[in-house]
Write a protein that binds this DNA or RNA. Sequence first.
RNA 1: GCCCGAGUGGCGCAAUGGUAGCGCAACCGAUUUGUAAUCGGUAGGGUGGGGGUUCGAAUCCCCCCUUGGGCUCCA
Length: 573
Amino acid sequence: MESFSSPMSDLKTMRHSAAHILAQAVVGLFPEARLGIGPATEDGFYYDFELPRPLSEDDLPQIEERMREIVSWNLPFVPEEVGKEKVKEMFDRQPYKQEIISELQGDRVTVYHQGDFYDLCRGPHLSRTSEIGPFKLLRTSGAYWRGDEKEPMLQRIYGTCFESQERLDLYLQNLAEAERRDHRRLGKELDLFSVHEGLVLWHPKGAIIRSLIEDFWRQEHLKRGYQLVYTPHILNQEVFQKSGHLAMYQEFLYPPMSLEGKEYRVKPMNCPGHIMIYQSRLRSYRDLPLRLAELGTVYRYERSGTLHGLLRVRGFTQDDAHIFCSPDQVESEISEAVKLCQFMLGSFGFEEYEFILSTRPEKYAGTLEMWGRAESQLQGALTNLGLSAALEEGGGVFYGPKVDIKLYDSLGRGWQGPTIQLDFNLPQRFEVGYIGPDGGEHQVVMIHRAVLGSMERFIACLTEHYGGAFPVWLSPTQAVIIPIADRHISYARGVEEEFKGRGVRVEVDARSERMNLKVREAILQRIPYILVVGDKEERAGTVSLRLRSGEDLGSKTLPELWQIIQPELKPCS
RNA sequence: GCCCGAGUGGCGCAAUGGUAGCGCAACCGAUUUGUAAUCGGUAGGGUGGGGGUUCGAAUCCCCCCUUGGGCUCCA
């Protein structure tokens, strides 16, 4: 049961009550409406309905109006304990409610009503409708009954409600701000990439960001004993039959290509290729742990409705690695991988994130014993690092337990990013082994891990995280020199050469436009350093420095400028 | 995939039955400028694709494609 005292649960209660008022309003407008459920959510509430006609956003003001009316009636929310049979009668025209009632334990059920509107509800609620805070209906959408696509599609109305108008306005402002930070919008404005049916085209400015991240990634992996590999984009499909991917993920695979009686598939995973490299010769325990890393591009046919900018795509590059090790190396390898995740995220300015430990699902490969051991190894590695993880019981993949980190987009939606997964399935299917000190053959343990997730998803989150103002070392253009008049261009070129020679991505904006326009555009492009040069600067051998934040740092000599820029050129770690 | 919404020049938008227009960008010209949009001119689309209704279709109907929100948060 929820506590009544904390402000958070007060807000939840209020939103839940708001959902009931929404339902009452909708039933008022559509007496034949069938009700689904209407809970409070993290930042608002919704209610699902089956209605005689589709709703559109244009219906929302009318429904809101009706809600206000109900609020003004100041009806009490009244709970009632009713016998199950009686409740079934009360809701005899509500098939979805019937379904819920028949699944409830016990023979008495709580029903709430405000005015003549009755709803099945555990509560709690506000005491009267007038206590509800300022609210707003936000959007409509479809939602399967019980989230199951075999069930009918209902119409969902989302809204939110706060204790004060200021909080509501702030929330709506945040929504607007999130829209400005949306990576799809920034991707266009900053000319970073475009996406066509889930396939990404990286434009020059996005490509340089990506390649800088990849360079950094490679260096950090080499430092940590990983070996870089490349594997082909297509393989004979026998490999995917053997790995089980073909059977398991059939619907996500692109169809086969046939040539000379052979069938090839575009790879949906990098693991089989890495296993082939491992198995290219006999391995000894002395070779372990063997860490093979690849920025491996994979293709999966995601359902059209789930595609979303760079966050869910059909072709993406995993920052993948497979660690082949002996059972006693597992814990330390996991631990190192977790540390690498932390290091990587920290290097890109992500400070707050949560680990999620997912355990054995209902359908699983391997033995109970393997799972038990692996889960405790994952947990152990986290504990030794002083980290806690949220537990997701049964959330593991069929082939092994995993630890994930979610990255959040500007709207607060979480997306799986870094992940460390144990795999019991592939070593068995491919008989991946090594010769132990005893001269016998032993099965290897495989750890599959990605410390960023995928380049696409990671860069999407990075873009939203910084609102397009990437750190200097990742900025496509790091400095722009703006000559005030044409006669300053040659001085500007000299400054450009000087800093280009020092590895700065700098350019001169020599267009025949006014300085004001160039400054404006430089700021909109989030260029970190804006260097204005005119007569004064040329005489003194300086530049006038302005930052994308709008801050004006005044006149700087070139050595002074270098002192400012140089420390920003490398990732701070 | 499913529900609802949207697709109009490179981008952002207008025109809801009378034959497509605005801003930015592009191009040409003028201007040489002191920290978030200089001025003028030129060109560019037949409205995502296909079919239909109509004297006449961005506008209405049907099919398809693309795209946005959602389909997890358990009375």
